[in-house]
Design a protein around this nucleic acid. Sequence first.
DNA 1: GAATCACGTAACATTAAAAGTTACATGATT
DNA 2: AATCATGTAACTTTTAATGTTACGTGATTC
Lengths: 157, 157
Amino acid sequence: MRQDNRLPRVLHALLHLDGMKDPATSDQLAEMLNTNAAVVRRTMAGLRDQGILTSIKGHGGGWQLARPLDEITLAEIYKALGAPTLFALGCGDEDSQCLMEKAANTATARALEMASQTFIQVLSSVTMADLADDFELRMKELGLTPEDFAYEGTGQH
Amino acid sequence: MRQDNRLPRVLHALLHLDGMKDPATSDQLAEMLNTNAAVVRRTMAGLRDQGILTSIKGHGGGWQLARPLDEITLAEIYKALGAPTLFALGCGDEDSQCLMEKAANTATARALEMASQTFIQVLSSVTMADLADDFELRMKELGLTPEDFAYEGTGQH
DNA sequence: GAATCACGTAACATTAAAAGTTACATGATT
DNA sequence: AATCATGTAACTTTTAATGTTACGTGATTC
């Protein structure tokens, strides 16, 4: 299949949302993420259901953070996305009859399982606040200020 | 993309090859692996180039192990396959301009990198002989003998 | 209360890479 | 010389994310 970029995309979106006082519309986020509004809604739906984001309909509506960044771990976000398939590699047919195939599949599955645990463990140890810190560091390194990253919205609602 | 099952498939094939004294043709292996000969040749090409397998053309030819199983680690096999993409997850655009996107991508990439290291590490710690042992254990648990797994070839060449 | 805005969602097209398939060239054996 | 088996190219199929379009529903504004 195609590569699944939902996780980094959502992380990116959340960082932008943190810097805004008004809700951001799906269209605004779509522009930031170089995609379109339907993809944004579809992707963020899980985060809303999980209580990470709030969505507001109607005039002045859009997406907002439901919690401060330091109370959101990357693992929680990954889970909110439905914990999508991590690996492009498979471990063969689940219920094969051949015992040699079973040995081969089990060995592959074990390596994948260990890797998966590492992945989740790393995600669990990082919060969105850590990403915000990383962003600020990068900004200072370039001698920029937060104003350079404020979203240029219409301000009308 | 579709799932990549080359690794478990090749492991399976090597276990079968270990039990045979004559070379196995691509057609024979294809039958064991539930695929066809061209896929077998394409998949095993890397293992031949890496000196794990030998391929012999012509009458009585086919595929053979080039080394004993305890001198072949799973990591070496994975590398011989070209170290195919491990993850279905991507970490976003490599050279994005947005610093927030960079922070998001970097965090994702870090988690993937750690997971990848774990994967390789586990593969490095397992040899094909370990898989053969696992197979024998499964066989004994079912009260079967090696003869039950000998390939029923034509014997003609 | 009508118009507008923005999310919610369904349906369909696009995309990318492994896997499946077919065909034929090359080399080895009989 | 005929046959067997690999080597390889070209093309089709498969699968799930992504892109796209369209329309329903709820909230706000005037």
